[in-house]
Design a protein around this nucleic acid. Structure first.
Lengths: 203, 203
DNA sequence: CCCACAGTTCGACCGCTGGTCTAAACACTA
DNA sequence: TAGTGTTTAGACCAGCGGTCGAACTGTGGG
């Protein structure tokens, strides 16, 4: 969260600062991005930058947040659900939209994933929010009997997210040399894997 | 991999260098460790350090490798398996030993986990080796009919590892405020979750 | 009209980082 | 002893994130 003054800046300049930071991060990744270069890119002085952002982490966190928001908007939501079938249908739709966004914006997605990989760093709050979002979705599933209730919700969310991230990793490594219908087939199978993990057992 | 000369050093000095680096990493984590401080700790000059290691990443990678080897030794192996029951019994044993090692050496385990979290960095080769190890174990299971064969092996390995890492994350966040028998109970349940994910379906 | 003052911008400077390089010390053989 | 290759020392470098005092700008009051 930038210092409050940041939001009194005219939108053009705000966009300029965040844009410069985003460009730098896209070029060099989250770790490799240089604060000094961002400042240069934005064409302002160091003093000014520190006048609006507490520190480097503050700026990068802000940028990452905007990316996360874009992703969430692209993923959409479940839609109205009152039966397990509707729930799983809604989830499948979300997953498809997510897959599309990730493949169409691979660099942005890379930064998004670094939020999940982050451990005990500055992105922790964002990570917590992500997990909360997943938990909410699972909770909805429990309410209509689509998701098992024999595990702590948080554990289920971590396990499911971890599994999906693992699968995603495999995809990013292999999907270049795969025919696209194979990608579709396997990603649908992964959806089945997730469903198998999360559905109530003994049915 | 250090430069070949490193292995001509007398073992005491070798231990000294790696020990200094390990201490630094335990104190400040993988990211926060300073090469200059390691040099100071080891009591040698910068020139000497660069004479034995190509760069900072080289040294840290070497230390991380030794930790990984310790972990592998602590986890043990499956033992002889020729039936699904034996396989799952062996795996349960490995998981129990892993859990014990992780809880008894939390700092070392933290560094070990950073190998998995690592994305496109210097630890990539180590990460690949880890995934290979998991794949080998799953392959053994496939040979005795304990593990499903309807997914690419690498994908299964990534998904399973990701799920376990997610579960582990939940544990490290919650196990402090949990009675130890609850920990046992849930970790066994997670083993069941893994098994459910990996067993051939329709049985 | 000018002063005072808050808000804003500037860039020199700081300690530290990982990494390079020259020169000296050392070991060993001819 | 001279010469050669190996090993050590530490001054030095550019770049990093971050600090700070000075300067500039705009505004309201005497």
């Amino acid at each position: 969260m930038p210092l409050p003054r940041f939001y009194k800046l005219d939108p053009e300049q705000r966009e300029n600062l965040l844009g410069a930071a985003r460009a730098e991060m896209l070029e060099h990744g989250y770790e490799g991005a240089s604060f000094n270069r961002v400042i240069e890119r934005a064409g302002i002085s160091k003093g000014a930058m520190y006048y609006y952002f507490a520190d480097k982490a503050d700026l990068y966190r802000t940028v990452t947040e905007t990316i996360a928001e874009e992703a969430m908007a692209a993923f959409g939501d479940l839609g109205p659900v009152s039966t397990p079938a509707e729930y799983w249908g809604g989830l499948e739709g979300m997953m498809q939209r997510a897959l599309m966004w990730i493949t169409s914006q691979p660099q942005l997605a890379e930064i998004g994933k670094s939020v999940y990989a982050n451990q005990g760093g500055v992105l922790d709050s964002l990570r917590a929010r992500l997990l909360e979002g997943v938990s909410d979705i699972l909770k909805q599933g429990q309410d209509v009997g689509a998701i098992r209730t024999d595990f702590p919700l948080g554990l289920l969310a971590e396990a499911a997210t971890g599994m999906m991230m693992g699968a995603d990793r495999w995809f990013t490594e292999h999907f270049a040399e795969m025919p696209s219908e194979e990608v579709m087939r396997i990603s649908f199978a992964v959806y089945g894997l997730l469903r198998q993990l999360l559905e109530p057992q003994g049915k």
